[in-house]
Simulated scan of single mutants.
Amino acid sequence: MISVLFVCLGNICRSPMAEAVFRHYVKEAGLQDKIHIDSAGTGDWHIGNIPHVGTRTKLDQAGMSYVGMEARQVAPSDFTYFNFIIAMDNSNFKNLTRLSGRPCSHLYRFVDFIPETSYQEIPDPYFTGDFDETFDLVSKGCHELLHRIQVEYHLQSTK
């Protein structure tokens, strides 16, 4: 099974949005039995909380489920379990690099999966209030990530 972890600061806005969007795309492709998806935060402020109301609203508008999602903090075991650990911004990338304690070849920046973008990181709607902008970027990146995984792991859509 291929495993993907999206990481932001508090795990209530960007990373759960990416988790829900990516789950939706993976399910549409019929690959939910081949790809495990999760999200986490580098901070511990929101552990156990459901996604932010702005994230839930955007996902509801798009018809994407977030049922059962609760904020959690990155754990040391995540660095050995997940094939892809994807940081939503540069600060999270630096924190994950530090937390891993060693070079981590499967650590990425989310913007690495958005072709031809001028963005250096995914803006945090917790601070910007712009959940539309974040959703658009997350949707593009998740689409490209799924394509990359399908090519790299030779996975064909079953639907």
Rank of each mutant, 00 (worst) to 15 (best):
H36V: 05
H143F: 12
V74P: 04
S100H: 10
F93S: 04
I37D: 00
E28P: 10
H106P: 12
T117E: 13
K140T: 05
E28W: 06
F93K: 13
P125R: 05
S157F: 00
G41P: 11
Y119I: 04
R102Y: 04
K94W: 08
G101I: 00
A29H: 02
A62F: 06
R14H: 09
K94N: 15
Y25E: 07
M69W: 05
D130P: 08
H46M: 13
D124W: 05
D60F: 07
L145Y: 02
Y119F: 14
L155D: 04
M1S: 09
L145K: 03
G10R: 03
K34M: 13
I85T: 04
L99A: 14
D78S: 05
T55K: 03
Y126C: 12
T134H: 05
L146F: 01
T55P: 07
E70P: 00
N49W: 13
Q150F: 05
R109M: 11
C104I: 08
A62C: 07
S118Y: 08
M17G: 01
P51T: 10
L107N: 10
Y119E: 11
D44H: 07
R56D: 07
L137P: 00
G63L: 13
P123A: 06
C13K: 03
S139A: 13
T80Y: 03
K27W: 02
T42N: 10
D44G: 15
Y126V: 01
N83E: 09
S157N: 12
F113C: 03
L96W: 02
F127S: 12
A75D: 11
G68E: 11
F82W: 07
E19I: 10
V67F: 06
L145D: 05
D124S: 00
S65G: 12
P51N: 10
Q32H: 05
G30W: 02
T97S: 15
Q73K: 14
C142A: 09
V111L: 07
I47V: 15
L5N: 03
P76H: 02
L9Q: 08
G101W: 02
S77Q: 04
G10D: 01
D124K: 03
S39C: 01
Y108Q: 09
L96V: 09
N83H: 14
R102L: 04
Y153V: 06
T80W: 02
A71S: 15
R56S: 14
T57N: 15
G48Y: 10
N90G: 12
P16E: 02
T97F: 12
H52R: 11
D136C: 08
Q32G: 01
P51L: 12
G48C: 11
E19Q: 14
Q73L: 05
A29S: 12
R109I: 09
L155E: 01
H46C: 03
Y153P: 06
S157Q: 08
K159N: 15
P51D: 09
Q120C: 06
F135K: 00
H24S: 13
S39H: 04
E121M: 10
S139K: 07
Q73M: 12
D60T: 07
V67D: 15
W45F: 08
Y119N: 08
H106T: 12
R148Y: 08
L146E: 00
Y25T: 06
T128V: 03
D78G: 00
L31Y: 00
L96S: 11
V53Q: 15
E116A: 15
